[in-house]
């Protein structure tokens, strides 16, 4: 079960990075707890993957692994959407700055 070991090692790494960020006060104590719970659940699912089938079947999906893939795709699409919107906003902001400089540069204000 190499995959389990890989996932567990990754979780340990993730928790270590998260706690580092907590020590640097990048994240709040509440955020730290949420992340710890999240990684703990991931660890449980990695060690006893069959148990996730119970939740999946309750939602009408046959296997826990399938449910995970579905959720992942939804999350990825959502993040992609947010990223596109964010990029569009940054693009507009850059244009505003460039325009402002062009206009001020011409009228001798820079």
């Amino acid at each position: 079960m190499i995959i389990k070991i890989v996932i567990i090692v990754f979780i340990v790494f993730a928790i270590w990075r998260t706690s580092l960020r907590y020590q640097k006060k990048d994240i709040t104590g509440r955020e730290l707890i949420i992340w710890l719970i999240f990684w703990f659940l991931v660890a449980l699912a990695a060690i006893w993957p069959k148990k996730t089938d119970v939740i999946a079947q309750w939602l009408g999906v046959e296997r826990g692994a399938d449910l995970l893939v579905y959720i992942s795709i939804i999350v990825i699409f959502f993040l992609l959407f947010r990223l596109i919107v964010k990029l569009e906003k940054i693009d507009r902001a850059i244009t505003e700055i460039i325009r402002d400089r062009a206009l001020k540069g011409k009228s001798g204000k820079i």
Partner: peptide, 11 residues
């Protein structure tokens, strides 16, 4: 008027 970086024809 000079745009410092290329922003496109509309801009």
């Amino acid at each position: 008027l000079r745009h410092l970086i290329n922003r496109g024809q509309g801009a």
